[in-house]
Nucleic acid binder design. Structure first.
Lengths: 226, 226
DNA sequence: CGACATGTTGAAGTGGGTCAATGTATGTGG
DNA sequence: CCACATACATTGACCCACTTCAACATGTCG
């Protein structure tokens, strides 16, 4: 009922093992000790933060090669298998001199968190869904058809929208000829540039270097430092 | 005009120095190399990600004792002084065996990012502003008066709202007797429990352990692992 | 086939964005 | 010192995008 929690407490799970989870299974729960982290061998994982009101914030989706669960204290999010999943479990080496691998993992966790922020920071449903699809495409395909193994509800809770808005937005993209669906879980991006335009471009790392352009909101800046 | 960028490129700034910035000055810019990070000695700093459309997402505010700028690649956000600020600048030790301090810094950066996610993940303006105030209170005061050195626009860009909504929401809290203002930059939290109720409680780390309670949105979970 | 989860779509309500005006503080120059 | 300019903050009126409520379609698994 609560993933590996019990086993952690008993210390009965050996380190650096391969684990399998079936679709929907809990990998770890909010509040568990964060004494290990995971790399995805195959399948898809979601990390979820549950609010008291029953609201769910998905903080990320993780695919083959991704790492997750790199918190250092106790888990501030749960992890669940979106599909049948195979993982490698690695011990957390707190303060260990050999903390290099873990450092990399932390960096990737930070990347993931930032990606989530930039999705949630977008202003409307079109931008968020477009950005989400582009990220998925960059991660999951050679820009051909991309699998969407998660449900619309998962996407909604990731983007801070409702199922209905996600569904409507996707339908809208189809109607506009931006994408095509082969069933709800398989999506083909037809007009990448159109999607990029909607998403606000600058996906990933391509960025208008230097905060040269000052936006809408003004800025006190009385000439700058150094 | 672009903070330390030029100096970085010339390598003319020695490592581990104390730096001062005046209100509004840029500490580093989006796209700069992330070859150092900072600790706040005094003052307040904001980190900003600029979108192409001129929209600004503030990813965090940093006060005395906080660290920021721990990206490992190039800066994906700029940093600016909200008030006059004194900082310590530390070199980034990529892959250095002595990476312990940096590891801690990374962890704190992750914390900060997560905090931002959980603010943006909240559903409405009341929840976001209440949560923001509680976080500021926890960080900045003995729950007495808390300074809000940033502008309403800064808060808005941090919470994914507009200036107007932030202002209206704060005014609403005052009207409801939840808080009192002594000028726009100084706030006294009168009814902490009321604010917590609005924010959805579970601020910080106090959490309904274990994803036991399954929320609104359903969950496939066909019995869980282990 | 029936049960249940998931997805889509329509209609109606509303929270917060937008537009606009006014208030307030800080600064600058005459 | 006051007149004026500039930023920041507050408040009102209106409108729209998204949520909410509801119905129905589709798919999957027992």
């Amino acid at each position: 009922m609560q993933g590996l929690s019990a086993e952690y407490q008993r210390g009965s799970i050996p380190q650096d093992t391969i684990l399998k989870f079936r679709k929907g299974e809990i990998i770890f729960s909010q509040g568990d000790p964060g004494d290990c982290w995971f790399e995805v061998i195959s399948g898809t994982v979601r990390t979820c933060h549950f609010h008291v009101d029953g609201h769910r914030q998905l903080t990320g989706f993780f695919y083959q090669g991704d790492v997750f669960g790199v918190e250092y204290g106790s888990r501030d999010a749960a992890a669940e298998a979106v599909t049948n999943t195979i993982l490698t479990r690695r011990p957390a080496l707190n303060g260990d001199p050999d903390s290099f691998g873990q450092n990399r993992a932390l960096e990737r966790a930070l990347d993931s968190a930032n990606q989530c922020i930039f999705l949630l920071g977008r202003r409307n449903a079109n931008e968020r869904v477009a950005a989400f699809l582009l990220i998925a495409a960059k991660r999951l395909s050679a820009l051909g058809s991309i699998p969407l193994p998660m449900t619309r509800g998962d996407i909604a809770d990731h983007l801070g929208l409702t199922i209905h808005t996600v569904s409507r937005t996707i339908s809208g993209f189809v109607r506009q000829g931006l994408i095509e669906l082969e069933g709800p879980q398989l999506c083909r991006l037809v007009d990448l540039d159109g999607l990029r335009a909607i998403a606000g471009e600058e996906m990933g790392v391509a960025i208008d270097k230097i905060g040269a352009m000052r936006p809408r909101r003004s800025f006190t800046g009385q000439g700058a430092g150094a």
